[in-house]
């Protein structure tokens, strides 16, 4: 049970990193981006590509399987993922925004997800990849609880990111402008907020977090073309649970979804894993559709 909770917390951190990006995009740009999970996959593969092109070793620092090589690769992966998110917005979403029914944007993102996922499949093949083949020695805590150092790291990182993001949105001028657009785009525009600037930063933050999340997921599980796709439902569940637009809510949403999943798997067969976030999602939509925590914006409506 305790082990399940510990594992849930680390998976929850990965989900939370993805969900924070999704919730920002849903809150500010006002549409559900089905392609977001593919940004995770893209980020993970870009880091992999950097490692294999430069010949860098993923490296090892202290107990972590996360050395300078992978840090560098992650930074480049973040840049490349932001570039992808911006390119997709420029090529597809920008042309539709404001012109069509906004659910058509959701539809377009659905098609984009397919293109990105299978392009990755095409380029890198369908087989699983790993950043490093080193074995990691788990920390033994107390009576038989095993925690991988990487898991602890991703947990701490997710907490840190959410705090920084929260402070950024709450106190910085740019953050205020982003919240303004989320709340009321027309009013924000009147007050001199440039939508394009907000657009850029929303994708930059969302895409960057997705890439980091993807690298961590690739490190703790394995890198496959459908890795992001498998996380899409938990990410959506976490974002909705946390209240759309609420970054800290998304953090807790991620932990809650992952914990329920980890604990439920003690009783139900592992094959039903993906169904757990789905049931959570339906329950949330049924019982408290605005999420457990108040959304910081007008939601995606």
């Amino acid at each position: 049970m305790i082990q399940a909770i510990a594992d849930g917390l680390s998976t929850g951190a990965i989900i939370a990193l993805g969900a924070m990006g999704v919730t920002l995009v849903m809150g500010i740009l006002r549409f559900t981006n089905f392609a977001h999970a593919e940004y995770l996959t893209w980020g993970a593969y870009m880091a992999l590509a950097v490692l294999s092109v430069t010949g860098l070793d993923a490296g090892q620092t202290g107990p972590f399987r996360f050395g300078l090589g992978l840090v560098l690769a992650t930074v480049i992966a973040v840049v490349l993922t932001v570039a992808l998110a911006l390119a997709i917005d420029y090529l597809v979403f920008r042309r539709l925004r404001g012109r069509v029914n906004h659910i058509t944007l959701v539809f377009a993102s659905f098609g984009v997800a397919l293109i990105v996922r299978y392009s990755i499949h095409l380029i890198f093949g369908g087989a699983a990849h790993y950043y490093s083949n080193d074995l990691q020695i788990a920390w033994l805590i107390g009576d038989g609880l095993r925690v991988m150092p990487d898991q602890a790291l991703v947990f701490a990182l997710a907490l840190l990111v959410s705090v920084v993001l929260f402070l950024f949105l709450k106190y910085s001028a740019l953050g205020l402008a982003m919240r303004g657009v989320a709340e009321n785009p027309a009013l924000a525009a009147i007050n001199g907020v440039h939508f394009r600037k907000i657009l850029f930063w929303t994708w930059a933050i969302g895409g960057g977090l997705a890439a980091v999340s993807g690298v961590f997921y690739g490190m703790t599980v394995q890198i496959r073309p459908d890795m992001g796709f498998q996380l899409l439902l938990p990410i959506f569940a976490a974002a909705i649970l946390g209240g759309i637009g609420n970054v800290v809510g998304a953090l807790f949403g991620g932990f809650i979804v992952a914990l329920i999943e980890a604990i439920a798997l003690l009783w139900i067969p592992a094959g039903y894993k993906i169904a757990v976030p789905f049931v959570v999602l339906l329950l949330v939509l049924w019982l408290c559709p605005r999420g457990l925590f108040k959304g910081s914006s007008g939601g995606s409506k």
Partner: peptide, 28 residues
Amino acid sequence: LITLRLSEEYLAIATFGIGLTVQLVALN
């Protein structure tokens, strides 16, 4: 019934979930 009184995006997400879940049930 669960999603249609809410924003239409939720229907998209919930039906996406149905698609995945049915496949899981079929497999397991």
